[in-house]
Computed example of a mutant assay.
Amino acid sequence: MVAQKVTSAEVARLAGVSQSAVSRVFTPGASASAKTIEKVRKAAKELGYRPNVLARAMVSGKSGIIGLVVAYLNNQFYPEALEKLTNTLQERGYHVLIFMAARSAGNVDKVVEEILDFQVDGIIAASVALSSDLSNRCRAAGIPMVLFNRAQDDRDMSAVTSDNIAGGRKAAEFLLAGGHRKIGYIAGWEGASTQRDREAGFVAALHQAGVMLHSREVGNFGAEDARGATRRMFASDPPDAVFVANDHMAIAVMDSLRFELGLNIPEDVSVVGYDDVAVAAWPAYDLTTVRQPANRMVAETVDILLRKIEESDAEPRRVEFDGPLIVRGSARIPEGWKT
């Protein structure tokens, strides 16, 4: 026999309050006295009542749900960032649904189409890019979206990133100051704005110093691809320093250099990464890297999205946060460099 679902009317009768009072208690942002809240929650617990969030969304037009889209979680930066995003949104009274999507625009579009069916109030897309058609569809549906750690040419799309061009420049300037001239670069996925901008800043700083990029391989932001890129790069005329487009790859590069190629870091080759994930500080890696200011990026992403939810005519914003170079032991430290 299927148990009958407890209704808000039953909770109201047991608590001795009106049905609208029950509704206010379970509606984020609605007001109710402390006494009413205590009585309603006690009655709800006794009866096993749970409010129907989706039904409330159909009435109010607001679900209190944010869709969070991410392409992959093997890079430590994203689990850490998603935890921060989820906690921050929950503190602001929102629930979070996480959706996984492959990096190609077609797969991302399919996932976002599904998200729209959940009546979400807004979408945060982390590490993914959208087609222009889907961006327009979200705008037409009145669903605001913010890109996290990605940007794209659509100037109407809000985006929050670190200053990837400046970060690339810092990596180059550090390696040049350490006396390196045979400098390689292992790129991430070439469809990503983060990859493009980090490389652009890095190469521009090298050229400004009269140094050409010695070698380049593509690691696609993946560990196995990064190991293959390392083997190819060091097969002949190897560089004496490598900038790797993120820490997830840099860790794999360091393992390959040490345990496959028998090289010492930083004596034989310096390695610099990007992100400053937790593993970067482990003594086994002690990775010099450009830090992404994740806390500031998360706070700004949430502020932009919620402002757009509350004010539909709010202008799109693009924000870049400068991140410091964190100097550790994986790269030769220039004489007199302040750490």
Rank of each mutant, 00 (worst) to 15 (best):
F221W: 14
V218E: 01
A235L: 02
A245R: 07
A245Q: 04
R232V: 02
S236E: 15
V203A: 07
L213A: 00
A223D: 07
A235G: 00
A235K: 06
G210I: 11
A204F: 02
V242G: 13
G222M: 05
A223C: 13
A229P: 08
D237H: 06
A209C: 12
M212L: 12
M233Y: 11
L206H: 10
F243G: 02
F202L: 07
G228R: 15
D240S: 14
A235F: 08
L213F: 02
L206M: 12
G219I: 08
V242M: 11
L206S: 12
A204Q: 12
A226V: 04
D240E: 14
F202R: 03
D237A: 09
A205H: 08
P239M: 07
D237W: 00
L206D: 03
S236N: 10
F234D: 02
P238N: 14
A229Q: 05
D240C: 06
A204R: 03
F234H: 13
P239T: 04
F202A: 03
M233G: 00
N220M: 09
L213C: 01
A204I: 01
A241W: 05
V203P: 05
G219C: 01
A204Y: 00
F221G: 00
F243W: 05
E224L: 15
A226P: 00
A205D: 09
F202T: 01
R227V: 02
A223E: 15
L213M: 04
V218T: 11
D225I: 00
G222P: 00
G222N: 07
R216Q: 13
A245Y: 10
E217M: 10
L206Q: 11
L206Y: 14
A226H: 07
S236K: 15
P239C: 04
R232D: 03
A235S: 10
V218N: 10
G210C: 13
G210A: 11
V244H: 12
A209P: 15
M212I: 02
A229I: 02
F243H: 05
R231W: 02
R216F: 11
A226Y: 07
A226R: 13
N220W: 06
G201N: 10
F243Q: 06
A241S: 02
N220L: 09
G219L: 04
G222H: 09
G201V: 12
F234G: 01
L213I: 03
R227K: 11
V218L: 08
S215M: 03
R232P: 03
H207T: 15
M212H: 13
N220Y: 13
S236I: 10
R227E: 10
M233K: 05
A205E: 07
A241R: 10
R227I: 02
R216K: 15
P239G: 01
A245H: 04
P239A: 04
V211E: 14
F234S: 00
F234K: 09
A241E: 04
S236F: 12
V242D: 08
D237M: 04
F202Y: 10
P238Q: 12
P238E: 13
R231H: 10
A241P: 13
F234I: 08
V244W: 11
D225L: 04
D237L: 02
L213W: 01
S236L: 08
R232H: 04
F234V: 06
L213S: 01
G201F: 11
R216N: 08
G222S: 03
M212V: 09
T230P: 03
S236Y: 06
A223T: 15
